[in-house]
């Protein structure tokens, strides 16, 4: 938040903090921007994801692996996983900060949110790379 007061001596904030302008949260508008950036990436990536899932349906295992191993499919999925997990991590953090007011519960929720997002991201990325590079069939 901009500090527009004439006399800025009446403040606990350091001049450096004012200059950085990152506010009480410590990250300024960074989350807002990242949320829009990943949203813009998610729209085409998730439409492609829906097509991939539809193509995967009813395929026997070797064919499913072959489709997932295609470089374009693997690349789209990797990009989607990175963008989506970053987006959902920030989204859930905002929800937690809005609705969970108990300090301990809030801290635990924020921790769990980060762990969940990272576990989902790493599990997906590992699986995609294993399938596409691992010669499973």
């Amino acid at each position: 938040m901009a500090d527009n007061r004439q006399n800025t001596n009446v403040t606990m904030r350091t001049p450096r903090a004012r200059v950085k302008g990152l506010g009480a949260s410590g990250h300024g508008a960074g989350h807002f921007w990242t949320q829009r950036l990943t949203a813009a990436a998610n729209a085409p990536l998730m439409l492609a994801f829906v097509v991939i899932v539809a193509l995967m349906a009813n395929r026997p295992y070797p064919e499913a692996v072959a489709l997932m191993s295609h470089p374009v499919v693997a690349l789209i999925l990797i990009l989607a996983v990175i963008s989506v997990t970053a987006h959902m991590r920030i989204g859930m953090q905002v929800i937690i900060e809005d609705y969970v007011h108990d300090k301990k519960l809030k801290l635990l929720s924020l921790l769990a949110n980060n762990f969940y997002a990272v576990v989902v991201a790493v599990a997906c990325l590992y699986a995609i790379l294993r399938v596409s590079l691992g010669k499973l069939v």
Partner: peptide
């Protein structure tokens, strides 16, 4: 819907990990 998709991401992870685990798990 955002919260639902957040939970649904686990389903995607399960699906992909099953595919990487072999025919039995994927089946």
């Amino acid at each position: 819907t955002g919260t639902a998709l957040y939970g649904g991401a686990a389903l995607v992870a399960i699906w992909l990990v099953a595919l990487a685990s072999g025919p039995a798990a994927y089946g």
